[in-house]
Design a protein around this nucleic acid. Structure first.
Length: 422
RNA sequence: GUGGGUGUAGCUCAGUUGGUUAGAGUACCAGAUUGUGGCUCUGGGGGUCGUGGGUUCAAGUCCCAUCACCCACCCCA
């Protein structure tokens, strides 16, 4: 058998993990500041949840899900996104009946069977937030502000936040009718994809990348011209609040989201120049979703970001993620005879909270020194005949190259001081 | 699901119109320095040339298939 991770998946090796830890630390710090507490939900759910939640006609549900049955013949699906699970947890634990709003954040792997390419994988990592129980426009603005703050905290440059309102179901019925009327005269000229979109979800035609279709879009009815007064007032006050918070957004009336549950505010963060998968984050309101999933009529809003794309964007922006410096101390016994002393000292240092390690492979003394240099040891302790006869350890500072003799009673304190100075 | 590109050492890549034992840099190991890292020099180990078939006296090189990766369409985070 070939040792190879499945197509579209990859390992994050220890040499790379600090980048992910940095991103997760920065993001969750901001999410907590904004009052979004972490929730962890299962990595798979009943298939039904995603069909109901994400929408049967979406690409995700119709062709991208990892669905399987377990030994009891239940149909289960590896989660393709995080919102449905959050909604399910909210309903299951009846949190809608408690203190509102409920504000959550999550990290996790998502799974979509799609053709891999730059910034797109079959298993990928998302960060997301959800807020349930308020349709206040300040919440919309807050959540977009959080998204902006995260992007900036990670040192990503040249991003754009696009915003639109996709209205409520009532506005969409009106708008849908107007769109169909608009496209009717030149229906034949649209691409095949768009023709099926016309039947399924005409709003998606506005998102088509085909040059031909884009030209035909000229002068198309704009959604917010068909918003009911409640929806347009909501959108206006979202924009007012965003101004107040100094969050710059691009009004993008062609922006449509591909998941069925979105209502009212919809937004996306785009980073031109990082490749075809330039949308690093997106989300919006979903006021009908909790109800659709069997809960009460409770409004909600959220967004998700793709961490792989975030990492690409950070590299594109030239952001340097600092490698953690643990102040490593390496213990070298110069012959087998002193191995027990080395093990004991290594453990004493660890008990004192020092990152310490010793030699395990019986390499030559010189090779051990080379190794100490390679692993970036801050200090090295030699234990050999000379030292043991004299009743001291030799402590070498790897930065200055200087060496000193330290008696065993003081070695731990001396090392703590040395490691503290970077 | 559709199209294009690329697969040679752990990694990055050379390899001529098909021709002897497939190379370099880097990493690894050892020595120069028998108890002192980084720099330098010397030596060493390491390859089913993605896989399977075909053409040929002869294939890393040409042909076919297949797989994987990359890029784009599509979709989305």
């Amino acid at each position: 058998m070939e040792a190879k991770a499945p197509r579209g998946t990859f390992d994050i090796l220890p040499t790379e993990i600090y980048k992910w830890q940095h991103i997760e630390r920065e993001i969750s710090k901001l999410a907590e500041i904004y009052g979004y507490q972490e929730i962890r939900t299962p990595i798979f759910e009943h298939t039904e949840l995603f069909i109901r939640g994400v929408g049967e006609t979406t690409d995700i549900v119709s062709k991208e899900m990892y669905t399987f049955s377990d030994r009891s013949k239940r149909s289960l699906t590896l989660r393709p996104e995080g919102t449905a699970s959050s909604v399910r947890a909210l309903i299951e634990h009846k949190l809608f009946a408690g203190t509102l709003p409920v504000k959550w954040h999550y990290f996790g792997q998502m799974f979509r069977y799609d053709r891999p390419q730059a910034g797109r994988y079959r298993q990928f990592h998302q960060f997301g937030v959800e807020a349930f129980g308020s349709d206040d426009s300040h919440l919309d603005a807050e959540i977009i502000c959080l998204l902006r703050d995260i992007i900036m905290a990670l040192g990503i440059k040249g991003f754009e936040i696009h915003i639109n309102s996709v209205g409520c179901p009532e506005c969409r019925v009106k708008y849908r009718r107007a769109l169909l009327e608009f496209f009717e005269p030149f229906k034949e000229e649209l691409c095949n994809n768009c023709n099926s979109r016309l039947a399924q979800n005409p709003l998606r035609v506005l998102d088509c990348k085909e040059e031909k279709c884009r030209q035909l879009l000229h002068g198309h009815p704009r959604l917010f011209d068909y918003l009911c007064s409640k929806c347009s007032e909501h959108f206006a006050s979202v924009n007012t609040a965003l101004n107040l918070l100094q969050v710059d957004c691009i009004q993008d009336h062609g922006l449509v989201r591909g998941l069925d549950y979105y209502t009212n505010t919809a937004f996306e963060v785009i980073i031109p120049g990082i490749g075809a998968q330039s949308a690093v984050g997106g989300g919006g309101r979903y006021n009908g979703l909790v109800n659709d999933c069997g809960g009460p009529n409770l409004p909600g809003i959220g967004f998700a970001m793709g961490l792989e794309r975030i990492l690409i964007a950070m590299e594109h922006s030239g952001t340097i993620i600092p490698k953690p410096d643990l102040g490593l101390v390496f213990i070298i016994p110069t012959s087998k005879q002193w191995e027990n002393q080395a093990l004991y000292l290594t453990n004493e240092l660890r008990k004192a909270g020092i990152h310490a390690d010793k030699e395990y492979t019986n390499r030559s003394f010189k090779a051990q020194m080379k190794y100490a240099g390679k692993i970036d040891a801050r200090a090295v302790v030699f234990i050999g005949d000379e030292e043991m006869a004299g009743g001291y350890y030799n402590l070498k500072d790897m930065l200055s190259g200087e060496q000193e003799q330290v008696v065993p009673e003081h070695i731990v304190d001396r090392i703590i001081k040395m490691v503290a100075l970077k």
